[in-house]
Computed example of a mutant assay.
Amino acid sequence: MSDDVVITGYGVLTAFGFGADAVRSGVFGGGDRFRPIERFDTARFRTDRAAVYSGDGVPGVTISPLETPAQAPVLRACVVAALEMAGHDGSGAPLLLGSAGDRRADPSFWQTPGTEPPLDSLPGQLAHRIGADLGLGTPRLAYVNACIASTTAIITGAQLVRGGHARAAVCAGVHMVSADIFAKFDSGQAMSTDGAVRPFSLGRTGLLHGDGAAALVLESAASAAQRGATVLGRLTGWGMAADGHHVVRPHPDGAGLAAAARAALRMAGREPSSVDYVNAHGTGTAFNDSAETRGLREVFGPGVTVSSTKSTTGHLLEATGAVEAVITLLALADGVLPPTMGYLEPDPECDVDCVPNASRVANIRVAVSLNAAFGGANAALVLERAS
């Protein structure tokens, strides 16, 4: 291991808009962007709502409310913003991406014999073409392991930097709400039936999807110092664990999340008692939230403060880890905990302080961001304030 890993830039999109100010006003302000979907027909689904973005707030991109947006231009805008913030030209920096690919072409591919999907529909091509277009280095890799995909990208980039294989890495994730993925979650009856996401609350009925993308520039501390770059935060630990409990249900005791969190804390050299805040996976489903609570209490005890920002952004699937890492960075920098919105009343199985319904001022120095995925995959990041 050659050096500490720091974060020197990011770009982010949520349903609230592009950039950090949109996150501050929307996520930290407790906004609600769950709206009826116009970009595809929802008549056959149990719900018609998601947190979707439309408008011209993304540099170089106009997103129509009536069309599923292409992933490539949104992702490119986030990478460009991250590099500009970092003051880095991207040369030599690998691009690691979490994405299931651009889903817009899927219906025509399956319905029209002989058609070929455009290259941008393939996750690996998204990484390769954006990396080549912006003059980034190699490897250019895409991860498709569902809701820990962009967390995996961040962990891979951190390993490359800390191991001395790259001075900097660009790690990103993207998901734009699409009909086919929406249909799969709807058929599994995972979606909220009351138009809101209520993590850790009694009366929660499920998750809702959201548009999201983010890119982060990870860099060695030595490289950042040499360039005179501003350090926005430090990535001091990471961990992954697979519990293999069930194809879609989490381990009932949150064993995988707990193992990932412990591994990340060991790498960071931190005791659980030193963690001031956890950005929880918090999907708002009955199975996830109770299982995650047990895992949180197993690692951190009863006193840890958590919140779920999916209550405002929606579930961002492959983009989740990257966007929530940016949110956690802002919490550390601003000294404000994002709220868990939609909270109705306590659930005895979710007895954690989840910052219900309003943000909270707090002096936090160490935070953990947790993500979980189908198949028992789990990941954790330890993020620390820059100074």
Rank of each mutant, 00 (worst) to 15 (best):
A372I: 08
F34R: 12
L141A: 13
H128D: 14
G90Q: 01
D32G: 03
P113R: 10
G26R: 02
Q71N: 14
A172N: 07
K310G: 01
L330W: 05
E84I: 04
S91G: 15
H88F: 14
P69Q: 08
H165V: 07
T285M: 08
P118H: 07
A241I: 01
A258M: 01
G284P: 00
T205D: 06
A372N: 11
G233T: 05
R39K: 13
G314Q: 08
G87N: 13
V174M: 06
F185T: 14
L97A: 07
Y53V: 11
G254L: 00
V355H: 05
I155P: 03
A77W: 00
E292G: 05
G90Y: 01
V323G: 03
Y343G: 04
V299G: 04
F45H: 13
A379W: 06
L136G: 07
A100D: 07
G57L: 03
T8I: 01
Y10G: 03
A260N: 11
F374C: 06
T152V: 09
D48A: 10
E384F: 00
V23H: 00
A264Y: 10
F40Q: 05
H281S: 08
G163N: 07
E38C: 12
F200R: 00
T236G: 09
P107N: 10
G55M: 08
G212E: 06
T115M: 15
F28V: 14
A72E: 15
P272M: 06
M1L: 14
S192E: 04
C350P: 05
C354D: 05
A105E: 08
P73T: 09
Y10H: 13
Y343N: 03
W238A: 04
A255R: 15
H165N: 06
A333Y: 03
Q125S: 14
A358T: 11
C78E: 02
